[in-house]
Amino acid sequence: MNIFRLAGDLFHLISIFILIHKMTTSKSCSGISFKSQALYLLVYVTRYLDLFWTFALYNSTMKIIFIGSSAYVLHLMTGPFKPTHDPNIDTFKVRYLIGGAAILALLFPYKWTPAEVLWTFSIWLESVAILPQLFMVQRTGAAETITTHYIFALGAYRALYIPNWIYRYLTSTFWDPLSIIAGVIQTVLYSDFFYIYYTKVLQGRKFELP
C-alpha cells in the first residue's frame, strides 16, 4: 500500500458516495447513464471473482462495497427512480465496448484460465466504461454540478493509480503493463472532462460544453 493507491481508493469510495447521495436526496437518477453503471457492475463482478478464494481485510471489504453499491445503484435506477431515467439520451452502443474488451481479454491474458481472462476483460472494460456517461453529458451539453463531481472523483481514482504503479515499479514490487496501459487510456478519456471541470465547475460556473 502507498499513499497514491490509498488516495485513489478513497476517491473511488467518494465517487460512489456522491452518486448514491445525489440519487437518494434528489430522488432522481437524471443525468446518470444506466449503461455506464451496468458496465461497472460487470467490471466488479468479473474482476472480484477471487473473493471466493482469497481474503485480505482491506481488499475484500472494498470489493464487497464496490459490488454491493454498484448493484444498489442499478436497483435504484431500475426500481424506485426508473421514471426519472431517460433511455433516449443514453444511447451509447455498449456492445462494442464489451466486444472489444472480450476480444482483447481472449487474445492477451497473462494466463488462459477463466479467472485470468475475466480479470483481463474487467481491466479493459473498466478503461472504457465511463464512455456512455461522457457521451450522455456531451449529448445534453450540460450536467448538474453534483454529477460532474461524481465523474471527477471516479476519474481521479484511476489517475491516482498511475503514480501508484510508477512507485511500485521503482520499488520493483509490481510491473503489470496491462493494468498500466488500460489505466492510462482510462485517464486520457477523462482528460477533456477534467479540463472543463477545472476551468468551469471549480470556478463556480455551471458545467456546460463550449
Binding site: 493507491r5 473511488h12 482469497t54 497473462y110 480479470w119 510491473w175
Partner: peptide, 10 residues
C-alpha cells in the same frame, strides 16, 4: 516480473 500481477489492487 512482467505479467506477475499479485492481484492485490482494486
Amino acid at each position: 516480473k512482467v505479467g506477475v500481477n499479485p492481484k492485490d489492487e482494486l
